[in-house]
Amino acid sequence: MDGFQAYGAGKAGGVFDPQTFFRQPQTIVRVLCWLFSIVILGCVANEGYTNRPEDFQEFCIFNRNQNACSYAISMGTLCFLCSTAFLALDVYFPQISGVKDRKKAVMADIGVSALWSLVWFVGFCFLANQWQVSQIEDIPLNEGAAAARASIIFSFFSVFTWAVQCLLAVYTFKLGADSVTFSGEYIDPNQQEALEEAPPTEA
């Protein structure tokens, strides 16, 4: 039972090892998703708006479509928060003692990762299309062009990082389904030792 694995992690109560954690493929991909969301958010929020000398109001550099900039900023913010939350869950995951709770966490990871992959695919298509039809005169001195291209590129990358994250979660789910030989709760090692050391009660 020492080698027991429940959905990719051993029994609850183990010591957290940062080196092992950050070397896991799941963690690496999760960090990439987190970084890409920051890049997209930063590019559009900082350089996604401009104005021509004769205008007095800023407009979105993506074909003057406010929805394009709003989409990128909103999704970048939500993706950043979601990635942060799941990174925290990954850290806490080995401490979850219930097999059913671990299963729910892995299933949530599968669903959320698949959803974000779809969201960024839509975002990539939307931003790329709006940038393609943008007017040259709306971007004086090519201001913000690099940021626009970067947000499009990293939206494209995000489609694959979240898809890979989904596949890793599916693998973890299958691993857990194959390795768990019983259902319900399993006892924390510390609790198990306490039960073994406790004297038998008299009838």
Rank of each mutant, 00 (worst) to 15 (best):
Y49A: 08
T50I: 10
N51A: 12
N51H: 15
R52S: 01
P53N: 01
E54I: 01
E54Y: 08
D55G: 02
F56D: 13
E58N: 14
I61V: 15
I61K: 09
I61Q: 07
I61H: 08
N63K: 10
R64C: 04
Q66F: 08
Q66T: 09
N67P: 00
C69S: 13
C69P: 06
S74D: 08
M75N: 13
G76Y: 02
T77G: 15
C82S: 12
T84W: 09
A85I: 10
F86W: 14
F86R: 09
L87V: 10
L89K: 10
V91W: 12
Q95W: 07
V99I: 15
K100L: 09
D101G: 13
D101E: 12
D101F: 01
R102E: 03
R102F: 01
K104A: 09
K104N: 11
K104F: 09
K104M: 11
A105G: 05
A105Y: 06
V106I: 15
V106M: 07
A108I: 08
G111S: 10
V112A: 10
A114E: 04
W116R: 03
W116L: 11
S117Y: 07
S117T: 12
V119Y: 10
V119H: 04
F121Q: 08
F121N: 11
V122P: 03
V122F: 14
G123W: 00
F124D: 03
